[in-house]
């Protein structure tokens, strides 16, 4: 099979897109031949970075004024009309999931969004994805080529792009960024409208507001939660320090907040914050239903509690039955040492 990767180089998320798709390709496309990576970008300044992190030896750069799906689709449609690529691979972000089905439509292929696994069979591509609100895993057979799929976020581990100094990267470039275009408003001059211009003729005004780095407990990726079992304010303060050392945000259960050992805006659970971190460590939390609902959406829950029978133990992924203070002190030490050695990216 021959596959092409499409990435959005206009976005600051480029590196994670590249590593995500690279991880997926390494897992499921070992036998496939990578044709090229198409990267849309807005500024020449980033070109070396984009090329260096292109997951394939061959890279097609397309410069345009900004991420604009209608222009990108028109360009891809023309560029790929006579290509014999069988599979287009898009990352699982907003851009990837809007471009893949529309491109498939235009190229007469078939598409699937949020794919977490693929395998190739005779005349078809077998794709797996979650359906029924993530309660079921379905298998689909795509039979119309080209197959345009976008990935399910977090389905495979990201894989950094290997640096191969001796391999010459093959780069070709197209520039469709009209001189008259600014980054904010696209202005059109003259009667001869270009294809890309026509594709976004509906836009009268454009403004982009960069996303503030998400902060606070609601958006935290890593949280440490103190429960009733910590017994006093000083211990909560200490956990606050530990959270800082671990790189986590501190949250508390209702008894802790209602004892004023931590401000109410740290309260997790009913009447408080519904957290959805990648990692949640609970310390001396018993796991009452009213609390648990606040951490239920965590990817990984690690419970530390002296009581093996506490409800939180059964509701966690990993549990340590021991004194939370001793365990966390050790953990801080391990992580600090690892940081000194440069073991982690923390």
């Amino acid at each position: 099979m021959k596959h092409t990767i499409v990435l959005n180089g206009c976005s600051e998320t480029f590196l994670s897109q590249a590593e995500e798709v690279n991880g997926f390709a390494a897992a499921y496309l070992k036998d496939s031949r990578a044709d090229k990576t198409i990267i849309f970008h807005c500024t020449d300044r980033h070109k070396p970075f984009l090329i260096a992190n292109s997951p394939t030896p061959s890279t097609q750069l397309i410069r345009l004024p900004r991420y604009q799906p209608e222009i990108i689709l028109r360009t891809l449609e023309q560029l790929e009309a006579s290509s014999n690529t069988e599979l287009y691979l898009f990352p699982g972000d907003f851009a990837g999931s809007e471009l893949s089905p529309r491109l498939a439509y235009r190229l007469g292929g078939s598409s699937l969004i949020a794919v977490n696994k693929i395998s190739r069979t005779e005349n078809a591509l077998t794709c797996h994805k979650a359906v029924y609100s993530n309660y079921m895993q379905a298998e689909f057979k795509l039979s119309e080529r080209p197959y345009c799929i976008s990935l399910a976020k977090g389905s495979t581990d990201p894989l950094p792009i290997a640096v191969e100094n001796d391999v010459e990267k093959d780069v070709s470039e197209i520039d469709i960024a009209n001189q008259e275009w600014s980054n904010t408003v696209l202005s059109f001059k003259g009667d001869q409208k270009s294809e890309p211009e026509k594709a976004c003729a509906h836009i009268v005004d454009y403004e982009f507001v960069k996303k503030e780095a998400a902060s606070g407990l609601e958006n935290a990726n890593y949280i440490l939660v103190a429960g009733r079992g910590v017994k006093m304010k000083e211990k909560v303060d200490k956990l606050h320090t530990i959270a800082g050392q671990l790189g986590a945000e501190l949250g508390v259960s209702r008894p802790v907040a209602m004892s004023a050992w931590a401000p109410l805006n740290k309260l997790i659970g009913v009447s408080g914050i519904m957290a959805k971190p990648q990692i949640c460590i609970t310390a001396a939390v018993s796991g009452a239903a009213a609390f648990y609902t606040g951490i239920e959406k965590s990817k990984l829950i690690i419970a530390i509690n002296t009581d093996r029978g506490a409800p939180i133990i059964r509701a966690s992924d990993l549990a340590i039955v021991d004194d939370y203070e001793k365990v966390l002190d050790e953990l801080v030490q391990i992580i600090t040492e690892a940081q000194c050695k440069g073991d982690t990216s923390l």
Binding site: G269, V270, S271, M274, A290, Y292, T293, G294, E296
Partner: peptide, 10 residues
């Protein structure tokens, strides 16, 4: 009461 529904109610 599903406690998550109590939270959504707010």
């Amino acid at each position: 009461w599903d406690v998550s529904k109590v939270a959504e109610e707010r």
